[in-house]
Computed example of a mutant assay.
Amino acid sequence: MRKVIVSAALLVSSVALAGGGSAVPTGNTIAAIVANDPNFSTLLSAVQAAGLVETLSGPGPYTVFAPTNAAFAKVPQDQLTALLNNREQLRALLLYHVVPGRVTAAQVSGLSSATTASGGTLNITASGNTVRINDATVTRADIRASNGIIHVIDTVLMP
């Protein structure tokens, strides 16, 4: 499993560098929080490769359902490679993880669905202390950023 995570991170990093990437963001924006958490290194590389650093550093507000490195490692290698080699598909996938506005965990658990920045729909179910977004489970909620909020998920959301 570690080999898959490392392979995915290297693959994403090479795509980011080939595409020009972006400097590592600073401050307390969503992009900066992702950049400064080693559990999101694959997500950061994907955000850079898709050209979304500026968006996630902007004023927002945004709610981001952020998959960890372990979540990216669950994606079959051939699918991940294809995705990383197609900037538009990568961008659409990442924007599927973003909901316009600042939606806290308390608000999320009261919803049955949400419309994403890519125009897709996320299905939301809450049972006890567990909140699921499509097939992903929220493992950490309400990481506050200056331009929104992050909820950590254990699976990459596929439109």
Rank of each mutant, 00 (worst) to 15 (best):
M1V: 10
R2H: 15
K3T: 10
K3Y: 02
V4D: 15
I5V: 14
I5E: 15
I5N: 14
I5A: 13
V6A: 14
V6W: 00
A8K: 09
L10W: 03
L11N: 10
L11T: 04
V12I: 06
S13F: 09
S13T: 07
S14T: 15
V15T: 14
V15L: 08
G19H: 11
G21E: 14
S22P: 00
S22F: 03
A23V: 14
V24L: 15
P25Q: 10
T26G: 13
I30K: 08
I30C: 08
A31Q: 05
A32M: 06
A35L: 08
N36Q: 08
D37T: 12
D37R: 04
N39R: 14
N39F: 13
F40S: 03
S41Y: 02
T42E: 13
T42L: 11
L43K: 05
L43H: 03
S45A: 15
A46R: 04
A46V: 06
V47D: 10
A50C: 08
A50L: 12
G51I: 11
V53S: 02
T55E: 04
T55C: 12
S57Q: 15
P59T: 12
G60P: 14
G60Q: 12
Y62E: 10
T63N: 01
T63L: 07
T63P: 03
V64I: 06
F65S: 02
N69C: 04
N69P: 00
N69R: 00
N69K: 03
A70Q: 07
A71G: 04
A71Y: 01
A73P: 03
K74Y: 00
K74M: 07
V75H: 02
V75S: 10
Q77E: 14
L80Q: 05
T81Y: 11
T81V: 02
T81S: 08
A82S: 13
L83Q: 02
L83N: 03
L83G: 01
L84H: 06
L84Q: 05
N85E: 05
E88V: 06
Q89I: 00
L90D: 06
R91Q: 04
L93Q: 10
L94W: 00
L95Q: 10
H97V: 01
H97W: 03
V98N: 07
V98P: 13
V98G: 03
V98D: 14
V103D: 04
A105D: 06
V108I: 15
V108H: 01
G110E: 04
L111F: 04
S112Q: 11
S113H: 09
S113Q: 09
S113I: 00
T115E: 06
A117D: 01
G119T: 14
G119Q: 09
G120F: 05
T121D: 07
L122Y: 05
I124H: 05
T125M: 13
A126V: 15
S127T: 00
S127P: 11
S127R: 10
N129Y: 07
N129H: 08
T130H: 12
I133F: 01
N134A: 10
T137Y: 01
T137A: 03
T137W: 01
R140W: 07
R140F: 10
R140N: 06
A141E: 12
D142C: 08
R144I: 12
R144N: 15
S146A: 11
H151K: 02
H151D: 02
I153K: 08
I153D: 09
T155E: 09
P159W: 01
P159R: 08
P159Y: 01
